[in-house]
């Protein structure tokens, strides 16, 4: 199951539509990390609303995506984790340390916009 990746302004949006195998996840990670500099994206949103299970491999891959993308100069937000999924993740000790999470796509976009604005201001002051 391929995950469609859309470009929206300066952001890339990857919407997971159904359960993913480990292979799918790796492919998603590689594609996103490659695409982010190709299109000069400033932020990446991974929407996992459709997932009702997020296991340790998925958590690690999502964290890797976020770290790698940061190293390539952009921000990542994971959006749409379901309440039940969130709690079972925490119970398993999977807390997505150091990764930004938001309620849904809208919130994720708002977060990235705020980040970009702050960035602009810092640059203007220099």
């Amino acid at each position: 199951m391929q995950v469609p990746i859309l470009k929206q302004g300066a952001y890339l949006i990857a919407t997971v539509q159904s359960a993913l195998t480990d292979e799918d996840l790796k492919q998603l990670r590689d594609t996103l990390v490659m695409q982010v500099s190709k299109v000069r994206a400033r932020g990446v949103i991974v929407d996992v609303t459709a997932l009702d299970v997020i296991d340790s491999f998925a958590t690690r891959t999502l964290r890797d995506v976020a770290y790698m993308i940061r190293l390539r100069g952009a921000e990542t937000v994971i959006v749409g984790i379901q309440p039940e999924v969130a709690f079972s993740m925490v119970k398993l000790g999977l807390t997505l340390e150091g990764v930004t999470t938001s309620l849904d796509l809208e919130e994720g976009l708002a977060y990235l916009d705020r980040k970009a604005k702050a960035h602009e201001e810092v640059r203007a002051h220099r």
Binding site: A86, F87, M89, V90, K91, T95, L96, T101, S102
Partner: peptide, 11 residues
């Protein structure tokens, strides 16, 4: 754990 789960929801 609840506090951490809430963070995953962005709160």
């Amino acid at each position: 754990q609840t506090v951490e789960a809430a963070r995953l929801l962005g709160a």
